[in-house]
Amino acid sequence: MSQKIALVTGGNKGIGFAIVRALCKELQNGIVYLTSRNEERGKDAVEELKKEGLNPHFHQLDIDSSESIDRLRDFLKSTHGGLDILVNNAAIAFKQKDTTSFDVQAKVSIATNYTATLNVCHALFPLIRSHGRVCHVASMSGPHVYKKLSPKLQEAFKHAKTEDDVNKLMADFVASAEKGTLSEEGWVQNAYGTSKAGVITITRIQAAAMSADTSRQDILINCCCPGYVDTDMTSHKGTKTPDEGAITPVYCALLPENSATPNGKHLSNKSVVETW
């Protein structure tokens, strides 16, 4: 069996760290890259896992930096000739008590959680080999927001066919937040949930596009909600441990070859959640 190359974004702590740990345990004859924006924290995380008898590798990655993404792409291409598993975990969430104005929260959340994740896909998808697996870490906050959108916006999300369609929705949300017209235009004041609604929608579109690529076979692209996990992002109020939160992302990342399904779906607790 050829060596599989896996990569996890935002892997130095929380759910990402637990995903790296699980993949190191589960991948036979594989290499798992833990990536993080901060090099020192990332290398410390790798050393922590090595103390557990695991052997992750480190590569710096700031998903908000196109130069950082390109360096990673070039490294993977020259070192391994491709990539087999990509888990897009890196994301941010503003706390409820954060005093940052909502227009800034909207702009930053969409820029990192949606646009930067998409930029990683643009760079790394050409490297994904046949039988590859992609999992975007999303959230049930996406469907939660969707249910509160205006019927017009719900239809726009439901019938989005192209990346440009979703990009426009995300841009419209940011513009509406900047104008202070969210409610009038049918949006919800929830930047994190809206960004994840974008991720869930783009997952379906990416999966369809990848399936149409006859040069590669059996590449599945899904997204998932890890659950309410005890991490910095939830101010450690989550009910799941990070290792429990990693279960569904790792399930998506390790779907057996020629599974066919799920593909383009949003999963929770290893089961498909019907969204839109």
Results as ranks from 00 to 15, higher is better:
93 A>Q: 13
202 I>D: 08
28 Q>N: 13
169 L>P: 12
215 S>E: 15
88 N>E: 11
169 L>G: 06
160 A>Q: 05
114 Y>Q: 10
115 T>A: 11
17 F>I: 01
267 L>Y: 03
188 V>S: 12
226 P>W: 07
212 A>D: 13
138 A>C: 04
210 M>Q: 15
151 P>V: 03
269 N>W: 05
177 A>Q: 07
216 R>Q: 12
43 K>A: 02
159 H>M: 14
122 H>F: 02
84 D>T: 06
123 A>P: 00
137 V>A: 05
76 L>S: 09
148 K>W: 00
34 L>T: 03
174 V>M: 04
62 D>K: 06
67 E>M: 09
129 R>I: 08
213 D>G: 10
225 C>P: 10
76 L>H: 04
272 V>G: 05
242 P>M: 15
27 L>H: 03
132 G>K: 04
162 T>M: 13
82 G>F: 00
32 V>A: 04
71 R>L: 06
189 Q>K: 14
118 L>Y: 00
85 I>N: 06
195 S>E: 12
39 E>S: 06
74 D>V: 13
207 A>M: 14
272 V>R: 05
167 N>G: 08
59 H>S: 07
195 S>K: 11
19 I>Q: 01
33 Y>G: 05
248 T>N: 09
223 C>K: 13
246 A>I: 07
26 E>A: 10
16 G>L: 01
227 G>F: 04
84 D>W: 01
203 T>W: 06
187 W>S: 10
172 D>R: 07
20 V>Y: 00
270 K>C: 12
9 T>S: 06
180 G>K: 10
195 S>V: 12
24 C>Q: 05
